[in-house]
Amino acid sequence: MRKLFQLIYQYRAFFIFLLLEVISGWMIVNHNDYISASYFNSSSAVAGNVYKNKQAVQDYFQLAKINKSLAKENERLRNQVSSDSLIVDSTSIGIPFDLSGQYEFITGKVVNNSVHRFRNYFTLNKGSADGVKEGMGVINPNGVVGKIKSVSSNFSTAYSALHSSLLISVLIDETETLCTAHWSGEDPTEISLEYVPRHIKVKKGMNVVSSGYDSIFPPGVKIGTVRNVAIDEEATFYDIEVGLSADFFSLDYVYVIGNKLKQEKDSLEQELQTEYEQ
């Protein structure tokens, strides 16, 4: 027994090394779960504040650009208001009008963002104190941006749509085909569409919008337009690349979307599923 302790003591550096590697390995595995504490990511108070101050400095260099995009959105909203009094045309606006009561929007600002990794995240300056909850969708005026991962009282961290394990339920607008959008990990301006069966006629330039079935995003929020279509002779599904409409290199103001009826929808579907399984 004493020899064993001697051995451990002699090679203590190696055992410490093993212990620390096991801890980090355990953290890597657990961190990829959807539920994780918000202390150890950029929504924690310290990291959030550092990023907020960093962004405050960077903002001065981007004021003109942000101004321009806000003015553009203002114009769009103004047009919407004036056209709404005449006809409600759900195709001309980002979010279908008849559903607007179901969703609530929280304006947030991106204070940290990455696009070059395989798993990209961004940090927002709004947290649980402002009503942000885990699992909410994030969009900007151009399209879908991501999904909230974890929340602290004043900050939140979100999966970017450029995250290799985030799947978004989408429709090809023209053909109403339900499929899944998933980032392949290489080009930050493109996302791939999966499970588009070969009998569908997909063409370049078709619009891809969120389906709303996952009750994270409202139906009809734009994702992008089809950029490349290819299919192998024996493949069941197309390989489709979609050019993202949101510019992930310059995210500034975004909207976090809360779905007031999510719980009701989920519990109804849960009921159906358990019934089906029996």
Binding site: F17, I23, H31, S42, A47, R119
Partner: peptide, 15 residues
Amino acid sequence: DIFYNSLGTHMAAMT
């Protein structure tokens, strides 16, 4: 890792 949202990755590499 806390700042990169990649808990564990840089810890393993640095160790």
